[in-house]
Amino acid sequence: MSTESADYAERLRKKQTVWWKRALHVQAPYHWNLRRQGLGRTLDVGCGIGRNLAVLPAGSVGVDHNSESVAIARSMGYDAVTSKEFLGSTPPASFDGILLAHVIEHMDADSGEKLLREYLKFLKPGGKVFFVCPQERGYDSDPTHERFTTGDDLVELCRTVGLVPQVPFSFPFPRKLGKIFIYNEFCLLARRPA
């Protein structure tokens, strides 16, 4: 399965709308973690079906290479566009923040760097970039994951492209639970120099 396929978009939709996730509002702590980063008007790169767009500030935009995922996000009222639509129409330095949640692990290191460089031109000087990648159990849960990416890997990526990273952290539980809890994540906030 490719992350560009209609099947992948449908997989995301089914995972997001399962009854117990809606009843328990399991995204609440993750949304809290995202909001507390203070990203401002955000470009959500690899937005999928838009689960994070629900809590990002007004004016935020999701972009994804999967047109089916973008269609689902739009049907839920989110501002989402395909990569081709976005790259051909958006002025540089127009966003306060960039979100890459569950994106970098889907590609090799060179492709991840290339993707980040491609979208950094849309980030204002002094803007923030927030990364989220799954830990071991979450990484193993998706056959489209290509490269296990740790917080230290994210720090290295940031330094390579000229971002100033903070200290990576494990969320929502300590790092040792990443091998058993599917939703434990590596998180890193970085800043573009002003």
Rank of each mutant, 00 (worst) to 15 (best):
S5L: 11
D7A: 15
R11E: 14
L12S: 04
K14Y: 04
K15N: 14
K15C: 03
V18K: 15
W20P: 02
W20H: 11
A23M: 13
L24H: 07
H25P: 00
H25S: 14
V26N: 01
P29A: 04
Y30V: 11
Y30W: 13
H31C: 00
W32K: 11
L34Q: 05
R35M: 15
R36C: 12
R36G: 05
Q37T: 10
G38Q: 12
G40M: 07
R41L: 00
L43C: 07
D44W: 11
V45W: 01
V45F: 05
G46L: 09
C47D: 01
I49N: 10
I49E: 10
R51K: 15
L53S: 11
L53M: 07
A54V: 15
L56Y: 02
L56D: 03
L56F: 00
L56S: 02
A58K: 10
A58I: 00
A58L: 12
G59Q: 04
S60N: 08
V63K: 02
D64W: 03
H65F: 13
H65K: 14
S67H: 08
S67Q: 09
S67L: 06
S67K: 11
V70F: 07
A71T: 08
A73Y: 07
A73Q: 08
S75K: 10
S75N: 06
M76T: 05
G77R: 00
D79V: 13
G88S: 10
G88R: 05
G88L: 10
T90D: 08
P91K: 12
A93R: 15
F95N: 03
G97A: 13
L99I: 01
L99K: 05
L100T: 06
L100S: 01
H102S: 11
M107C: 09
M107L: 09
D108A: 11
E113P: 01
E113V: 08
K114P: 00
L115R: 11
L116H: 01
K121C: 14
F122A: 09
L123E: 05
K124F: 07
G126I: 11
G127T: 05
G127A: 02
K128I: 05
V129Y: 01
F130M: 10
F131D: 06
V132N: 02
R137T: 14
G138S: 07
G138N: 06
Y139G: 09
D140N: 10
D140K: 15
S141A: 15
D142M: 08
T144V: 10
H145F: 09
E146P: 00
F148H: 12
T150H: 07
T150L: 02
G151S: 09
D152F: 01
L157D: 01
L157A: 03
T160H: 10
G162H: 05
L163M: 09
P165F: 08
P165N: 13
Q166L: 14
V167P: 00
F171W: 09
P172A: 07
F173G: 04
P174T: 07
R175K: 15
K176C: 13
K176G: 00
K176R: 13
G178D: 02
K179V: 15
I180A: 12
F181L: 15
Y183H: 13
Y183F: 14
Y183W: 14
F186P: 00
L189H: 00
R191M: 13
R191C: 10
R191G: 04
R192F: 14
